[in-house]
Each structure stands twice: as structure tokens, then as C-alpha cells.
Amino acid sequence: MNCSSHHFDYLLRLGGSSLVLGQRMAEWIGHGPVLEEDIALANVGLDLMGQARMLLTHAGALEGRGRDEDALAMLRDVPGFRNYTLCELPNGEPVSQVGATRDYAFTLTRNFLFAAFQCELWKALGASRDAELAAIAAKSAKESRYHYGHAADWMLRLGDGTDDSHRRMQAALDLLWPYTHELFAADAGEAELEAAGIAPRSETLRAGWLQAVEPVLAEATLARPADTGFLSTGRFGRHSEHLGHLLSELQYLQRAYPGAQW
């Protein structure tokens, strides 16, 4: 299969998003509010890392320059990453101003919004003419459905919970919502990818996503924030200041000891 740079970038975008959010999940290990949730986030992170491995391996193979999953994950700097900005935001401070580095309301709300997106994405990519991408999508769909179920469950419990839990969920939702715009924003490569049958235009995923998101928000007594003109640009390699810090931890070992294996 011929690989255009748009195709490669698209795979980097999806693989990077899973990788970066997986790393955010890993930051919770040992710090979960209760043991069950500690395990839950570790498991969600593991699935996301697995998706990232498959997508980046595929991207490297298509590129044909001998870069494997590790080279793409560990040996590129911030501008090389194409993940959605939503995925790289820290789990708490300084974005979520709750006075803690880890905010469970923020973490769960992001998981909910992104898992709902991934469910739509994998469903559409199951029909991709890129057979490997279609296979990865069919596999990942099962996992993302479960992530969605887990997060939706907590949206209800905490959104429709105490006054304090409701307030914190709404605050998280208000902060995160503008970053979801990027998931459905058009870009220069998508017409080509759509014509080649590789990926749908991003905008076409929005209706299904809203169908998955809005009823849960309503049941959770949370107000859906209004859309604004804000548009983040992680998919073009222009990131928030937070990604560099994340990568410095993720990539430390391969940077300090290149090629290290164990």
C-alpha cells in the first residue's frame, strides 16, 4: 500500500493520542482514590498502550524508513507528536485548579469524552481500506466500549451525586469541552484519506459522538457546555506546554540509555 504523508500523520495522530493518554493513566498507578479505580485506570492505560503499539508499528511499517514503535514513541520530540491536545492535558493542576496534581473528576470526564470518541472512530475505521488499520480498529472497539462504560458509570454517580461531586464534574466538563472541538475539526489531509477510503472526515464522527455523550450528561444532571471558537492544534504538532513534561518522563530511559532493553 502506498503511504502518503497524510496517511502516516493520521496514524501518528491516533497512535500518539492512545500513547499519551495511556501515560496519563499510568500516572495514577498507586494513587487511585480506591483500589478498584487504581486497577481500572491501569487497565484502561494498558489497553491504550496496546493500541498505541499496534498503530505506531503500522505507521512505521508504512513509512518504510525502518522506524519501529519504539522509535516513533521514544525518539521523537514534541513537534513530532500528532496527538490531540485533549489527551496530553495533565490529570489535575495546573489545568484543573483543584490544588492537586491528580483530579479524579477531570480524569474520568476526559476518559468519558475520549472513549465515546474512540468508539465512533473505531466503528468508522472498521471499514477502512487500510486493512491493518481496520483490524486494529475492530480490536480496539471492544476495549473502548468498556472504557466508555466505566467512565459513563462514574459520570452518573458523581454528576448526579453530592453537591460537591456535581460541582467538580461540571467544572471538569467545562474545562475539557473546548478541547473536544479538535476531535472533529477538518484538516488538509482528510479529503485525500476519505477519497482513498482510509479514514472518514473527522466532522462525520461528531453526530454519533454527541449521541453517546449527551444522554449521559443529561442523566448525570450535568449541563453540556456551549461550543466556542476555541480549537487546539495538537494534531498539527503544535502542543500545549504539558506534552514536553510528559515526554520527558515517558522517554527518559531511552534518551539516557539509547537502545536499552530488559
Binding site: V44, Y146, G149
Partner: peptide, 25 residues
């Protein structure tokens, strides 16, 4: 929407379906 506690899984010890999910993972 999959509901995480929608199925009554029978207990492996006594067979009762009066069970609850403690953890999704």
C-alpha cells in the same frame, strides 16, 4: 452504552445470581 452492572453473574460457589460487581476491572 454498555452498562457495567447489567448482568447477574451467577456465583461460582453457590450458584446464586444475587451478586454484585465490586470492580469493573
Amino acid at each position: 452504552r454498555i452498562t457495567l452492572h447489567g448482568r447477574s453473574v451467577p456465583c461460582v460457589r453457590c450458584g446464586s445470581t444475587h451478586t454484585e460487581r465490586l470492580s469493573a476491572f
